[in-house]
Design a binder for these strands. Structure first.
Lengths: 242, 242
DNA sequence: CATCAAGATATGTCTAGTTGTATAATATAG
DNA sequence: CTATATTATACAACTAGACATATCTTGATG
């Protein structure tokens, strides 16, 4: 009579407000350092109580997007992390240069046979053993990407051990005789987050991700790493160098 | 317990309560916009459980007679606003003629490239710069619609500034040399409200909206505005002139 | 010009009240 | 006995208002 089984599990009001403000910020309507409208004004705009706006703002503060000062207002803390993609792609260096505090958590390192795509990208025979590792990247303590990258073991013997000991791609490659490497190719596309990715990135299943696929080569143009990275779309802006 | 338990009840308690409240409303005891007593008070007054009162209120909400807002209360719903759609569509004029108090709140004005659909509707090259603005429409202080409309900047230089200064489409167009305009086409369809729309219109996510897509042209039949409006389905009745 | 005081604003915190939702128990009709 | 209507209880989410406290603005004062 009154209700049908098709009940609407609506998103919380404060959550919708947070999303709206997050969108305004990421679209540049409020630039970094800008003062957001006062809580009272926002409450009026959205037609809700001030406490509901405060809940939304608290969420944005928790995410690091907004910083509040009592008596002064709420200010946009920073734009999404700029992540330059060019000939030299170094996670730690890039974020340090942007004034961020980078962090990396390796979830797994394993040896396994190469898939067809991996073998092709690394220019090795299909089914050859390689070293794969995947994990999470953080900026200022907030997860911004999940990655999976593989190395040809035949070309880089001991890379798996070096990776485990150093926890750094750059250092591990240096350990096995690759002092420098450059990005040979990068492909970008947008996909939806699956459950696992959403969990790691603290977002919702289906939220947009920016997927980057790239191959790094050594000084003699031999592929040394084939990596895929899924960036949280609302936290990262990739910038392309000429 | 207080009511005769041995007798067979022809009508359910909640139904009787709904009828009583419906009568109070139709007799003017509660005028449109008035706040009904709280569920606790009504439960006390009718000598029943709060849930039984809620069942009655749910029925009235379903009928469209009552609107509830969590934390605020239950209110007698205002009558739907008649909104004529014809050759001349003027938000303010239409509502003033209907004896309402119109209001408009522009949320954003920006310049950006035209999408394919917008370029087609305005008969301009794809990607050309246009002026877009979106916001909210009110009738007697209640939000009844969200809108987004775009203008071709090449054909109407300065329209964005005029819009910002006047806050009125009709006046802004007059400022840039379009003294009069008429509706060339209108398309209507029903859609579900997303979280943002629901928030602005103070309704629930998934509630039905009436979407109107229209193109306005100047005296020489050149498109000057391409607008989309989402009306709250329970607050507006569109009326078509012959 | 520099400084201080007072007022206006804005966020932080607290208390209370109201609707929304979930779960379980009880009564009544069929 | 079974299904439905009603009661009972608890908690979550949102509103409403008041007050404290930090910050900014303004104007008077020397």
């Amino acid at each position: 009579m009154s209700n049908s089984p098709a009940k609407t599990r609506r998103t919380a009001i404060w959550s919708a407000i947070a999303t709206a403000l997050r969108g305004d910020i990421s679209e540049g309507r409020y630039a970094p350092g800008d003062k957001l409208p006062t809580e009272a004004v926002l409450a009026e705009r959205f037609g809700v109580n001030r406490h509901t706006v405060r809940h939304a703002l608290a969420k944005l503060v928790e995410e690091g997007l907004v910083r509040t000062r009592r008596g002064a207002g709420a200010f946009v803390a920073a734009l999404p992390t700029d992540y330059p993609i060019g000939r030299r792609v170094r996670f730690h260096e890039n974020l340090l240069a942007a004034g961020r505090r980078p962090e990396k958590r390796i979830l797994q390192i394993e040896r396994r046979a190469a898939t067809i795509g991996e073998a092709e990208a690394l220019a090795i025979p299909k089914g050859e053993t390689l070293c794969a590792h995947h994990g999470l990247s953080f900026s200022d303590g907030r997860p911004i990407a999940v990655f999976e990258s593989v190395f040809p073991l035949s070309r880089l013997p001991g890379i798996d051990i070096a990776l485990e000991e150093t926890g750094s791609v750059t250092e591990a490659l240096a350990c096995v005789g690759v002092p420098d490497y450059t990005r040979a190719s990068t492909r970008l596309t947008a996909v939806r987050a699956n459950a696992t990715q959403a969990l790691h990135l603290q977002m919702r299943e289906g939220d947009p991700l920016l997927r980057s696929t790239g191959v790094n080569v050594d000084g003699e143009m031999r592929p040394v790493e084939y990596g895929r990275t899924w960036f949280a779309g609302d936290r990262v802006t990739l910038t392309l160098e000429s």
